[in-house]
Design a binder for these strands. Structure first.
Lengths: 209, 209
DNA sequence: TACTGTGAAATATTTCACAGCA
DNA sequence: TGCTGTGAAATATTTCACAGTA
């Protein structure tokens, strides 16, 4: 009900609920039960209700949830009811894929600048986003308000880039490089190592016999 | 110590340990304690030891772990001590990024074919991987032994593609489309919705005040 | 001595089951 | 009646703390 200690896994599932609610909304669906929404997301319905109960009461007993209203509530909880301005460092294949990911932009996550150290990439424009030299980071930060920094560099450069992001005051970092980032407690860092997903899948396929 | 019910989060951390051990090995490190390896991965050392204890005893009391041997053991546990042959459906930006991800290939995850339904993409070659029409899936499967199918299509196509993968006998699916896949119990599906990472980060940054 | 390996305790998360209410 | 919201129970995971041993 309150504001304290929300499990990370609950926050993750809120994102899942948003995706599913968007689909139901697109189908013109007005009402939904915790049972049906939970099934769509592959979770238990009590869990869905418990997840929501950390933040308030959003349903009607005996009836269910209003699809558009629940969507609005969860977006407000997540903070995704507004635009987020982002920069990206490392304009390799993954970096370019993210710069071109239209779904992100549609959800309000907008890249305002990209950075690289490769002369051949600096000055290019990827999906309307200009690629600067990393040296120009402080200059770009004076022009743009930036909420999130995304790291898609090789592992060897990730800490250096993170340090620079932190230096210019960025409070949220999403790190796709396969290495842990050191950071002060007032900076939030989410790690996403794609190669580990393959490892995990290998483990389970391996054991199917 | 045995073979039963390994938590998914433990499998995930095994991947984390492998990444860190690879770095220590590259530095020529011979021995490491659970304390140091755990610190590098951002976990508690008892947890690391407990994770390993599901599978056996790999260290020496009073000494620590041999870096190369522990690496070998965890790779064998994960099944990543051999090559995995993969196909990919959906040659968009993310699909191309994965086809070009050299680290994956270095770890033994090799793409043998890609698929799309866009005429303009069919017949192209991305990082030595040929792009086929999805119709040619059964034909390609007769030529190649395939362990893993990767889905990087839009959400609307993901279930259809998964059904075809399952039909031709693929037992492991890694789905990057932002939708849950229905599948029989003898098929393993890992979901990775990148947009949810941004939601999660937004939530925590949002609450920093 | 300086570690690992592991029961047991502590904590966190999930699920049940039912009271409460439109 | 048919749902949500939520304490309480069940389960899972993490951490402690120490016996075991090279």
């Amino acid at each position: 009900m309150a504001d304290f200690k929300i499990p990370g896994i609950t926050v993750y599932r809120l994102g899942l609920y948003v995706r599913a609610l968007e689909r139901f909304l697109a189908e013109g669906r007005e009402l939904i039960s915790s049972e049906e929404l939970a099934r769509e997301c592959g979770v238990n319905s009590a869990q869905l209700r418990k997840d929501l109960s950390y933040f308030g009461q959003f349903g009607v007993r005996g009836v269910g949830y209003s699809v558009p209203q629940l969507l609005k509530h969860i977006r407000r909880i997540l903070g995704t009811d507004r635009e987020w301005h982002m920069i990206l460092a490392g304009v390799g294949h993954l970096g370019q894929a993210l710069l071109n990911y239209e779904l992100l932009a549609k959800r309000g996550f907008k890249f305002v600048a990209a950075f690289d150290i490769d002369e051949k990439k600096i000055g290019r424009v990827v999906n309307d986003v200009y690629v600067y030299s990393l040296e120009q980071l402080p200059y770009v930060l004076r022009e743009h308000q930036v909420d999130i920094g995304v790291i898609t560099t090789p592992a060897s450069a990730a800490q250096e880039v993170a340090d620079r992001f932190i230096e210019v005051g960025i409070k949220g970092i999403l790190n796709f490089a396969p290495v842990r980032i050191q950071h002060p407690p007032d900076v939030v860092v989410e790690h996403s190592d794609i190669t580990i997903l393959f490892d995990k899948l290998a483990f389970y396929v391996h054991r199917l016999d």
